[in-house]
């Protein structure tokens, strides 16, 4: 498993030759130039949202694309990150110090919860993980809705962010830095020996187990990494919106992550950006087309169909298919 750094495994070499070389760099450069080229508030807001959601989708990709487990409660991490930062800042001062405290609290919370849920659910079968994460996410959603004295229920609450972050362009660059750091970290994680074991588990769990790997431990690590990154994305989301309502924790958010990951391409990380861009743009502009044909008002039908077609016929998603080597069909798992 542990390969020397100079000799990356086959998968990563192919990736290096195809997309991950200059395209992301060019994209980053382009993104960095946006405030200079088109400083419109709406563009910046939309781009910031797309990037934050892409980070969320990348964290989901760690679970789905690199470990092969499906979570239906990923919004729990996103939402709890948002709520924690909102609540801590609301009840203290909007300074960078308290923000840091909130981020640390979020990290701790995500670690504890992901281990707890993972330990309860991953010991049996993967399918349990999907259902149990859904149940836990719903449980936290109910807390957010019913604990009115703290969360203000369905109405949500707004809060002030540190003055430095109120400036759109500053925040945009901060998010850009955030996504670069996350991307580097996640790529390092995937190409680390631990990440390789995760891919082995995805490809054939039994074989990984017989090779002597503690599958539960590695899956727990995967859920921890995914949970932490998702909750940081939640923090970023809250700071951008400056308003929080239970919607951030609803199952729709998880399904968004699922759609973004699948449509963009599972097991690619970068696919998250394509998925996030497509979904955010669709959400922004398709309802306006509803006057032409009512189906655009219910654009979720279109995305649902696109998603089903992709799962059935293009398991590599847009990016995987575009790269020309769609990921090998998952071996028929034994029940």
């Amino acid at each position: 498993m542990a390969l020397p750094k100079s000799q990356p495994a086959g998968l990563s070499r192919r990736k290096f030759l195809s997309v991950s070389g200059w395209v992301p760099m060019a994209a980053l450069l382009l993104l960095a130039l946006v405030p200079a080229l088109s400083p419109s508030r709406a563009t910046l807001n939309l781009l910031t949202q797309i990037i934050i959601l892409a980070v969320f989708a990348m964290s989901y990709d760690i679970l789905l694309g690199y470990t092969g487990i499906v979570s239906f409660g990923h919004a729990l991490f996103f939402g709890s990150g948002a709520y924690l930062v909102g609540l801590i800042i609301k009840h203290s001062e909007p300074t960078l110090g308290y923000l840091l405290l909130a981020v640390l609290g979020t990290l701790l919370f995500a670690l504890v919860i992901s281990v707890l849920i993972g330990y309860l659910s991953l010991r049996v079968k993967d399918v349990y993980y999907a259902m149990i994460t859904l149940a836990f996410a719903e449980f936290f959603l109910i807390i957010a809705q019913k604990w009115r004295s703290v969360t203000n229920g369905d109405d949500g609450f707004s809060f002030r962010v540190p003055t430095m972050l109120q400036h759109r362009v500053v925040y945009y660059y901060l998010i850009l830095a955030f996504v670069v750091v996350t991307l580097v970290f996640l790529r390092r994680f995937i190409h680390s020996p631990t990440g390789r074991v995760l891919i082995a588990i995805r490809e054939n769990e039994k074989r990984a187990e017989f090779l002597g790997y503690d599958v539960l431990k590695f899956k727990l690590i995967s859920t921890m990494v995914a949970g932490v990154v998702a909750s940081l994305a939640g923090v970023a989301w809250a700071l951008q919106q400056q308003f929080i309502s239970p919607g951030v924790m609803a199952v729709d958010k998880t399904i968004d992550a699922l759609l973004m990951t699948i449509i963009g391409g599972t097991g690619t990380l970068y696919g998250a950006f394509i998925g996030s861009g497509l979904i955010s743009l669709a959400r922004e502009y398709l309802p306006e087309l509803a006057e032409i044909h009512p189906v655009f008002g219910h654009w979720y039908i279109l995305f649902g169909l696109l998603y089903i077609l992709i799962v059935l016929f293009f398991p590599g998603g847009i990016l995987g298919t575009f790269r020309g080597f769609p990921r090998k069909r998952k071996s028929q798992e034994e029940r």
Partner: peptide, 13 residues
């Protein structure tokens, strides 16, 4: 037989 694909597909449905 493909558990992950089943969960994904039925979610889309």
């Amino acid at each position: 037989g493909n558990v992950v694909a089943q969960i994904l597909i039925t979610t889309g449905v």
